[in-house]
Nucleic acid binder design. Structure first.
Length: 590
RNA sequence: CGGGGUGUAGCUUAGUCUGGUAGAGCGCCUGGUUUGGGACCAGGAGGUCGUAGGUUCGAAUCCUAUCGCCCCGACCA
């Protein structure tokens, strides 16, 4: 039992000016966090209790799934990262952790960095400690602070520079084993989110800079989420935008025969899809081939899309470049022979074809069959361009951005889109890191193999905010039972009456014996203030003890989710409180 | 990093256009009256107006630079 007067819950009547969304405002107003700087937050006593609830449940589920907890340093020697596979891509978001220096010398390369995740630490550790198949599989995890110098911290804890994350790493002897580990984690994640009362759904995801072969994100649907989930309710298909595909191109599509000889025509000043679609040319955007130029690890490559489609840049990750970006106009002209707006990928028209690392075409251009594209000559386009005959495609792939309403690849039903908050992510990594760090083991035939890895993350602090975003009303937070900082608030209206406080202690004990954490509001505040604060901090069950009720011989029980007050006779109070607690705990379990 | 916005008391803010000694509400302190949904009265403390230059007799207000913060985009748990 905690007495409010001896705890610290600085609530606010007004929302801070820098908070935009409900959960961020409530985090601050309910006294759960305070801001230190952009993306940097102090977890106040009440907020820390929520974090502890979440980490404890997380720990139980991971232990249940065979996880082994450890703790790794957050300061990493930079050499580890330089040796790992993603230094070039990750260094931008990493904090350096050098000594502050004497303020005179110029900054050198960092000697230490702060860990954004721990693949570069765990893999060498496992390499050093495990060398036999007998010691595999293993799944190590920690729940700790992570550091990422986010380009744009946002929405309070939603995207912070310093945040709390559970990160786990599985090591298996075989690929099948790694898949088993992956699915065990996926199931543990589902149990975790269910227990804490977050309605998270698993969606197929892109592997991004982590690399690896497949991946799921756990998303909490919310308007303010950073990600789009593309889904179809009926078929169960769900993927994030980076990964989502559609069934737009039928598998049995027959490529169109050429419609005629190539025909160059003048298009002075036409440099956009829209301009070519307008009079006098009137070539519909869905009849145009759009040619984009990118730089991949220093070499240019082309991407061909329909004029009406958008590129989904993340999908270029599948091409295997370590780093890629859109090419600049200056880089484009020497290679293509024309400025952007007149580009095309027709055989023989590219000025310096040999410089290209590849020409990648989106499947959907096959729907065009015969269309129009740039001539690689400023102010000219070409008609009757046939996909098979004329375009120098290295390979086809899925590069376009899916639109809502397109057919679901599973069922053909229309796809829908909604926003979500990514609270967890699981990757089957494969051998990307074990190769780099030489994490090998010996099997029962004395042969050496690379360990097959998986990595897994849950944003603990982000989950706290996602729960609030998902569960609040105009008056405040509505905590789910299992992650509430306390489950029961005993609101003593007249704390100056000894019999009121005695009863509060008695009921607190009853609730605690039934398994609840109890907060007693013993402040000498007016009732209105206490009730407002009670709704704001949102504990699931409120018990009100007042002089008035005592005279009548009753106390009041009220669920945060419910409007009505349940009056209970004093003689029944202990039993009713205990029963209510047990019932709520049971409800939260199923 | 690109685009937009903003910085005045612990919090929310007015005043900035049109320069003239900084105002309110909440919170805080003292006293009193109140006491079942953010009370009322009286008194009080608290601001070098983000910072640094400049213009001016005079700058929160105009100019320049710089920093912080917020929103949109690329990135992520």
């Amino acid at each position: 039992m905690k007495l409010w007067s001896q705890f610290f819950i600085p609530t606010l009547k007004e929302s801070p000016a820098d908070a935009e969304i409900a959960s961020h405002k409530l985090l601050v107003r309910a006294g759960l966090v305070r801001k230190l700087g952009g993306g940097l937050y102090t977890y106040m006593p009440l907020g820390l209790r929520v974090i502890h609830k979440l980490t404890q449940i997380c720990r139980e589920e991971l232990d249940g799934a065979g996880g082994i907890e450890l703790w790794m340093p957050h300061v990493h020697p930079v050499e580890l990262w330089q040796q790992g596979p993603r230094w070039a891509a990750a260094r931008e978001i990493m904090f350096r952790a050098d000594s502050a220096g004497d303020g005179k010398r110029a900054p050198r390369e960092p000697e230490f960095v702060l860990g954004p995740t721990h693949e570069e630490v765990i893999t060498p550790l496992v390499k050093a400690e495990i060398s036999s198949y007998r010691d595999l599989p293993k799944n190590f995890y920690q729940i700790a602070t992570k550091f990422r110098n986010e380009i744009r911290p946002r929405f309070g804890l939603m995207r912070a520079r310093e945040f709390i994350m559970m990160d786990a790493y599985s090591f298996d002897a075989t690929d099948d084993g790694a898949v088993t580990s992956y699915h065990a984690m996926k199931a543990a994640y589902a149990r975790f989110f269910k227990r804490v009362g977050a309605h998270a759904i698993a969606v197929e995801a892109d592997t991004g800079v982590m690399g690896g072969s497949f991946s799921h994100e756990f998303m909490v649907p919310a308007e303010i989420g950073d990600d789009d989930v593309i889904y179809n309710e009926a078929s169960g298909y769900a993927a994030n935008r980076e990964k989502a595909t559609s069934g737009l191109v039928a598998p049995d599509l027959v490529d169109a025969a050429p419609s005629g000889p190539l025909e160059e025509f003048a298009t002075p000043g036409v440099v956009t899809i829209a301009a070519l679609a307008a009079a006098p040319y009137a070539v519909g955007a869905d009849r145009q081939f759009k040619t984009l130029v990118f730089m991949g690890d220093g070499k240019p490559f082309l991407v061909i899309l329909r004029g009406c489609d958008e590129l989904e840049e993340a999908k270029l990750g599948a091409l295997g470049f370590t780093l890629f970006r859109a090419a600049t106009a200056d880089e484009i002209e020497p290679v293509m022979g024309a400025k952007p707006g007149s580009l095309g990928a027709i055989n023989g028209t590219i000025k310096n074809f040999g410089a290209l690392a590849g020409i990648y075409a989106d499947h959907a251009i096959r729907l065009i069959g015969n269309g129009t594209t740039g001539a690689n000559k400023d102010g000219f386009h070409v008609n009757h361009v046939n996909v098979t005959r004329d375009l120098a495609v290295t390979r086809f792939g899925d590069f376009r951005r899916v639109r809502p309403g397109e057919p679901d690849p599973k069922s053909g039903q229309p796809l829908q889109v909604r926003r979500g908050i990514e609270v967890g992510h699981i990757f089957k990594l494969g051998t990307k890191y074990s190769e780099k760090f030489g994490a090998v083991f010996t099997d029962d035939k004395k042969e050496s193999h690379l360990m097959v890895m998986g990595c897994y993350g849950i944003g603990i602090s982000r989950t706290m905010q996602a729960v609030i975003e998902q569960s609040h009303d105009a008056d405040g937070i509505i905590w789910p039972w299992n992650c509430a900082p306390f489950q029961v608030l005993i609101c003593v209206i007249d704390p100056q009456l000894p019999e009121a406080m005695d009863l509060a202690r008695k009921l607190a004990l009853a609730a605690e014996r039934a398994g609840a954490d109890v907060l007693v509001d013993d402040r000498a505040e007016r009732p209105g203030v206490k009730f407002k604060d009670a709704d704001l901090i949102g504990l699931p069950l409120r018990i009100t003890i007042g002089g008035k009720g005592l005279k009548e011989g009753i106390v009041e029980l009220k669920w945060r989710t419910q409007k009505e007050v349940i009056k209970v006779a004093l003689a029944e109070a202990e039993r009713c409180v205990a029963a209510a607690v047990l019932e709520a705990a049971e409800r939260a379990r199923t």
